[in-house]
Amino acid sequence: MSGDLLSLVREDLRGFGGYSSARSHALDGEIWLNANESPWANPADSGSSCRRYPDPQPAPLVQALSRLYGCEPAQVLVGRGSDEAIDLLVRALCVPRRDAIVTTPPVFGMYAVSARLQDARLLEVPLVDGAAGFTVDLEAVARAAEQGVAKLVFLCSPSNPTGGDVPLDGIAALARRLAGRALVVVDEAYGEFSGQPSATTLIGEHANIAVLRTLSKAHALAAARIGTLIADPALIRVLRACQAPYPIPTPCADLAIAGLSPEALARTAERVAVVRSERARLAAALASAPGVRRVYPSSGNYLLVRFDDAQAAFDGLLAAGVVVRDQRAAPRLGDALRITIGTPEQNQRVLAVLAALEAAA
């Protein structure tokens, strides 16, 4: 890690070794009596895979993720979804009551939650609601980070719930301007649904860029809780020292590895293509539907939609068995719902319900 990037880590954690677990060292033997594990498998554990503590960073999974995201294994940290990586970054970089993070609301709420838990200051730079949808004012973000002594800038791309991408050239310019001051974290949880290349392509030239990815969305493994942080290898080492000893359960790691096989990846690509096609179809249909004020352009697997009567739309869909995300408590989204792109049949049901509501009004 360059000196500039190392300086962003809390002073008291730069040489922190963390907890040395029973799986921290490469040991080999026939009888394992070093971790106080049961010598017998649980009766329900037919494969006997759960009586042993897992590898903190399972090598086959790390290698599969590095291939998937086009990076080196040393750049990969696997954790409990993206949420754990967000929390680790805030705890490792922000000194309580001194340092700050920058976010761009309306946006994913865990950035602010992690800041509050760490007692780090939250600097909000609202997205700009314009003709092209919600966009990030990167100049305002840079000024807020500089003036507010921010250690972390979180950019969600595609942004949740608004759907817009953050341009790569803008991310690179921001990282260049904040070099030695802040880490720019690009959350690409929905990156598979976007046509924009990943910000991982910028890390080689900008060590103060980190990228969040997940298997929860496009790869349909939300319950497995497999999130990935891709960053400078030395920052990864710092965060591993701060991470809980055994973050990835063996069954989850095994499922993820199987879900990243060539055959599984081919099916995933087919389904992503369907989502993109259905996203365009649903957006066009909603845009011309009575009672809909605006449908925002989206690069994710969801659409943000403003309604004349969002309560009636939400209630009507729920009564028909369709659950969507109520966004009305979010800043400037008092009339909006977020609708995930489902199967063609599920999307058609959404349209039919909304049409019936208007007909009955």
Rank of each mutant, 00 (worst) to 15 (best):
L354A: 01
V62E: 00
L174C: 07
H206T: 01
L27F: 11
A132D: 10
R338E: 10
V272K: 08
Q311A: 14
A329D: 14
L221D: 05
I209T: 05
A74I: 06
S38H: 06
F134P: 00
V95S: 13
I101Y: 03
R294F: 09
R237E: 15
P106R: 03
R306H: 13
A182Y: 03
I31Q: 13
A360V: 15
G130A: 04
H219E: 09
G334D: 14
V185M: 07
A220N: 15
A218P: 13
R181T: 11
R10K: 05
P197W: 01
G180T: 03
R80F: 03
P245Y: 07
L255Q: 13
T135C: 04
P158M: 12
V353I: 11
V9E: 04
P233G: 07
A100C: 09
A244Q: 13
R294W: 07
A145I: 03
R325H: 13
S2C: 03
D55G: 02
T250D: 01
L174P: 00
P161S: 00
I203M: 05
L122N: 09
V76M: 11
A115D: 01
V185A: 04
V78G: 02
A266T: 14
N42G: 09
P39K: 02
G191L: 03
G18W: 05
P249Q: 06
F314Y: 15
R325P: 03
V153N: 06
L304R: 04
V323T: 08
E278G: 12
A132W: 07
I226W: 05
Y19F: 15
D55E: 15
V211A: 02
A266E: 14
L174K: 01
A179Q: 11
A120V: 05
P233W: 10
D55A: 10
A256V: 06
R225L: 10
A199M: 02
A283N: 09
V295G: 00
F108T: 06
R177S: 09
A189C: 15
H25N: 12
A283I: 10
A41N: 08
C156G: 12
R51L: 06
S198Y: 04
Y53F: 14
P290R: 01
G259H: 00
Y19S: 14
D254I: 09
H206F: 05
A142M: 01
F16K: 09
L318W: 10
D187K: 03
V305Y: 07
Q327W: 05
D4W: 10
Q311N: 13
S21G: 15
R213G: 01
L65Q: 00
V305Q: 07
T268P: 01
I86F: 13
L13E: 10
G29N: 14
V107W: 06
S20N: 09
Q63H: 07
E263A: 14
V113Y: 11
S299Y: 04
C242M: 15
G204L: 08
G18H: 08
V149S: 14
I31M: 12
A210T: 05
R91Y: 11
D187V: 02
P233A: 05
S194A: 10
I236A: 11
R271S: 13
A241L: 11
S277A: 11
P60Q: 10
L221F: 07
A59H: 11
A199H: 02
N42W: 12
V211G: 01
S288P: 08
G130W: 02
A283E: 12
P249G: 03
R51C: 04
L8A: 06
G130N: 02
V90A: 11
L229N: 08
E72I: 08
V166E: 01
P60A: 08
